[in-house]
Structure formats: structure tokens, C-alpha cells
């Protein structure tokens, strides 16, 4: 199945490059793959959860949430925004984070925990930045709500 998908990806990618119809560079299309696909993203989110649990500033926000629900939702979301073969089915960023009153500093702290998780799961610096570039525009939907 995965093999078939890869072939499909490459065929589609080559077609779009050859036809010059592509709006996005092949590198951008590949973010999901650069993150290590489903397995890499799961590993990353698991490590992020470890970081969150150990963090004095951030853990209080999660104290009442369900780990398995968050894990599933976050993996699904990350897969979707990295243009993997997933459709995000959770609530909107605004709905999830409303009532939490997340500050700018809290948001940056989560970004730092994510960077740490990416480092310890071996994601390269350029790939880290490409993922952060997708997440940064969501800040307005998440903080101070």
C-alpha cells in the first residue's frame, strides 16, 4: 500500500514538474515524507507529549485533557498540514483553544517544546523550519481566546 502510494506520489510529482503546472515546489510537497510519514509524525507527537508532561509552564493546560484523544487529534492534524494522506477531522483551532487564555509566551514555549521534540527524534533543522512555517500562521487562532 505504502509502496503504491509512494509510486503515485512520484508519478504525480514528476507529472506536475514536467508540465510546469505546479504551484508548489516538490520540496514543499514532501514535508510529510520529510517528517517520516505516519511513523515519524507519531514518534514526534509522542515525544512532544513527553516534553509537555515535563513542562511546568505548559502541563497545567493539559492536566484535564485526555492524552489519547489529544495524541490522535494532533497526529491527524500534523499529517494534514504537512500534506500527508489525511484529512483533519477535529475541531477548529479556534474552538479547541477558546477559554484557555493562552499567552504569547505560552505559545512560544510550546514551539520550543516542539523544536526539542523534533531535535530528539532526528528531524533536520530545515525540515523543522518548514513545519514551523506551517504552524506559525495558526497562532492568531490559538492565543488569547
Amino acid at each position: 500500500m505504502i509502496f503504491f502510494k509512494r509510486v503515485m506520489w512520484l508519478v504525480l510529482l514528476n507529472l506536475s514538474v514536467l508540465s510546469c503546472a505546479s504551484q508548489q515546489s516538490p520540496q514543499e510537497n514532501n514535508l510529510y515524507q520529510a517528517l517520516g510519514e505516519q511513523q515519524g509524525i507519531s514518534k514526534l507527537v509522542d515525544q512532544l507529549i513527553v516534553e509537555i508532561v515535563a513542562d511546568e509552564q505548559i502541563f497545567p493546560y493539559f492536566a484535564k485533557a485526555s492524552v489519547s484523544y489529544f495524541r490522535k487529534g494532533f497526529i491527524n492534524h500534523m499529517c494534514a498540514i504537512s500534506e500527508g494522506p489525511c484529512e483533519y477531522t477535529g475541531d477548529s483551532m479556534v474552538d479547541i483553544h477558546t477559554g484557555m487564555n493562552i499567552s504569547e509566551g505560552d505559545f512560544n514555549r510550546v514551539v520550543e517544546l516542539l523544536i526539542r521534540a523534533m531535535e530528539s527524534t532526528g528531524i533536520s533543522y530545515p525540515v523543522q523550519n518548514r513545519l514551523l512555517a506551517r504552524l506559525a500562521p495558526m497562532r492568531e487562532q490559538i492565543i488569547k481566546r
Binding site: Q27, S124, Y125, P126, V127, N129, R130, L132, A133, A136
Partner: peptide
């Protein structure tokens, strides 16, 4: 600009 130049900021 995050990741703007070959992934570098």
C-alpha cells in the same frame, strides 16, 4: 521568514 531559503530562516 521561517524556512524561506532551502529550509533556513
Amino acid at each position: 521568514h521561517l524556512g524561506a531559503i532551502a529550509g533556513y530562516n
